[in-house]
Design a protein around this nucleic acid. Structure first.
Lengths: 342, 342
DNA sequence: CACTCGAATTTGAACCTTCAAATCGCTAAG
DNA sequence: CTTAGCGATTTGAAGGTTCAAATTCGAGTG
């Protein structure tokens, strides 16, 4: 990066001040604290601001105020692989919500899963960002403890399971999601309702399974045999889905812990000449694009609300110096597609 | 956004200078122009930098140098919908390449497809970014002309079709991609090779079709009837794929203009009890995650190279004030999956 | 030994904004 | 008529860095 070419003299506060016949501080006030300026003066200043096309310099402002007005977001993924489906929609939501919180989003991340914390340190030390937003925090994730230890503000999309005392998070109520899925399927008249999930031990997965278990129990349809588990890999999921579909049978339905699993069920149905929805119902989880493309009913993550909540939380931390007293659990929404249309 | 809490005195150039017994400028030189500093002094300064944990303030540096060291990237999408599959991998590549070009990526974008240019203007005027990277430039896209008109540096992922004189772009050679797909299928022993693409008029689509046409002609397998077109919507694609599969028949293969179209063919095969690869070959385009998950062979976009090229281009524009003399056409790579395994 | 030259380093200034404190102008109270 | 008080506005300063110009120090030269 080098010096921009058209660094032709941009208008500064002084230019506006001179033109409007006031002092620089009044111009600054007109933008930062309008209530401190007489309406008549305000009008005049704004006219000149408009006329000269003035916008305060981010750099100068950041320097004076000792804050970047930016939040960092790590993007990992060796190349283009292993990208979380949620990354794009979440990042878009974060980006769109940012202006409401007077900040913007700066992305960063290294290639070969290198020294991740080093990157956080650099971003923070150079004050390129004031805080971070984390996603995909996993078990034994070093980031939360490290950030906390260094007094760096951050909020996490997804609970930080390792540290129950950590409260700066927003997450989706997986139990409520799968519960709603079951209710939806029951109301649509499906019979046996199975569940395709991940092996026990994954906290997110267990929670989603629990919602299914609770809801089916409530409707006296609880059957341990209607449950199958698989790793989050497509071929494995297809293999696991086969027998489950068999057990559920025509007129039944399957609730899945993720959209990928739902797609596996979808594929199994097609292979056997069955039509998703008409023959067997499917509900996925995450509301991903591919689910929508295939007409799958899915429990959609409220990305917008999550992003908004997380930015509120970091804002509060920056303002008060203390973290929220409690995390925020958000309820996902069922988006109906043809896969739950009998 | 408010003042960070732990704005505890960070080390500054002065602190380091004092500790190392040199002047602030020498410290600055040690980092910016090491060759100007005597090796012995350099050593001493670096020791202190390390000891004090000093990192230059981005804000102060940007202010002095009159450059943000950042590139803006628009993320659109009403909510989480309509997201380009390419967005996530491209953005990750861009983010990872950025440090090599001494910059970072700042995202922005508004919700309801509002005043887009207004956002570009704001980002630029406040000097939050020095330049922009565009993607998904479409016909009658107002952005290229606007940016050019305002003398704002930018580079585009994808040619700017409206303006042949514009050279700051990097793109994928679609023709080479589908050509390679045909070669691959021929070498694997497939018979008739069809093409599922978009209606004529889309320049990207036409180019990809051309590669297929050229390659099949070369092998004397040119058949206009082996071609079908559809809009980029899954249900439509499935409808169009059916007859095409029929015409290609067992032992044949289909090259698709996108992975979504390839998935449609995949679905059609399953529905008819056929196995992708064994019965009918499929090659998609884009190398998307979902293609990989389903085992589809696909022409993968060289996102990393594109990102690197685009950042080089904006860097050059910022340095020289002039745009590259020519755009950069990159060759995609075929990634083989089970869908082209006879 | 004075003198030039160049490398290494230092000093002064500027980048643009906003905070904090001081000043101005005016009204209302003493 | 003086003065306190208040809102509106201005002035001084600082935030941390890097550019440009000035200075210092030694070595090499006449």
């Amino acid at each position: 990066m080098a010096t921009p070419p058209s660094a032709r003299a941009r208008a500064t506060v002084n230019d506006v001040a001179l033109a409007a016949g006031v002092s620089r501080q009044t111009v600054s006030n007109a933008l930062m604290h309008p209530e401190r300026v007489r309406p008549q003066t305000l009008q005049r200043v704004h006219t000149e601001i408009e006329r000269l096309g003035y916008t305060p310099s981010t750099a100068a402002s950041s320097l004076r105020q000792q804050r970047a007005g930016a939040v960092g977001m790590e993007l990992t993924g060796q190349g283009a692989d292993t990208l979380s489906d949620a990354l794009a929609p979440f990042l878009v939501s974060l980006t769109i919500c940012a202006p409401r919180h007077e900040c913007h989003i700066v992305t960063f991340g290294s290639d070969g899963g290198g020294p991740v914390l080093e990157q956080y340190r650099e971003m923070w030390r150079s004050r390129l960002v004031d805080a971070f937003v984390l996603m995909d925090t996993h078990h034994d994730d070093p980031r939360p403890a490290w950030l906390t230890g260094h007094g760096i503000p951050f909020a996490s999309f997804g609970r930080v399971w390792d540290d129950p005392s950590f409260t700066a998070w927003a997450d989706v109520d997986g139990r409520a999601g799968t519960d709603a899925a079951v209710e939806h399927l029951v109301s649509r008249g499906y019979g046996p309702i199975g569940f395709l999930g991940w092996p026990a031990g994954s906290l997110v997965g267990d929670e989603r399974r629990q919602g299914w278990a609770d809801a089916t129990a409530r409707h006296d349809r609880s059957h341990a045999t209607l449950q199958a588990t698989t790793e989050q890999r497509f071929p494995d999921a297809v293999a696991a889905a086969g027998p489950l579909v068999e057990r559920v049978g025509r007129g039944g339905a399957v609730v899945c812990a993720s959209d990928m699993l739902a797609l596996a069920v979808h594929e199994v149905l097609l292979t056997r000449g069955m039509t998703p929805g008409r023959d067997v119902g499917i509900v996925g989880f995450d509301g991903s694009q591919s689910a929508r493309a295939h007409g799958l009913t899915s429990i959609a993550q409220p990305y917008r609300a999550i992003a908004d909540e997380l930015l509120t939380q970091v804002h509060d931390q920056l303002t008060t110096g203390r973290a929220h007293s409690t995390g925020s659990m958000l309820t996902p929404t069922l988006v109906a597609g043809s896969s739950s249309q009998p």
